[in-house]
């Protein structure tokens, strides 16, 4: 599944759509700690986080993420959308909590419909 497909499957809203959204998601990280995100060694990761800041995007970009989903229905500051465009990184939001978001992504990636 691509990042765009995962976002659609969990009922998220795409805020900045770039070409990274077409990449397949092979790994999922649900973290609010940037150093924790940097521990990820796998490519093609999608990040779910409850933190809405520029640093989230820069961190995701450093590890080559396919995209970032801000959970908890947090408003995305304009500056953050600008940074996402500048970095060419897809950015979406979701009204799920991070736990619910992780579960929804898990179900989507594993074809669980219930």
């Amino acid at each position: 599944m691509t990042f765009a497909e995962v976002v659609a499957a969990i009922g998220g809203k795409m805020v900045v759509l770039t070409e990274t959204a077409d990449r397949k998601v092979r790994h999922v990280v649900g973290s609010d700690l940037m150093s924790d995100v940097l521990l990820v060694d796998e490519d093609d990761m999608m990040l779910l986080t409850s933190l809405a800041s520029d640093q989230v995007l820069r961190t995701a970009q450093i590890v080559g993420a396919t995209g970032v989903v801000i959970v908890n229905d947090k408003p995305v500051p304009d500056s953050m959308a600008d940074v996402a465009r500048e970095l060419g990184l897809s950015l979406a939001t979701s009204n799920l909590s991070k736990y619910e978001g992780c579960v929804a992504v898990y179900k989507a990636l594993n074809g669980i419909t219930t």
Binding site: V28, G30, S31, L48, K98, Y99, C102, V103, Y106
Partner: peptide, 11 residues
């Protein structure tokens, strides 16, 4: 496990 996998297991 990481937070994502832990959440999925708990679910």
């Amino acid at each position: 496990l990481n937070q994502y996998h832990t959440s999925a297991r708990i679910y």
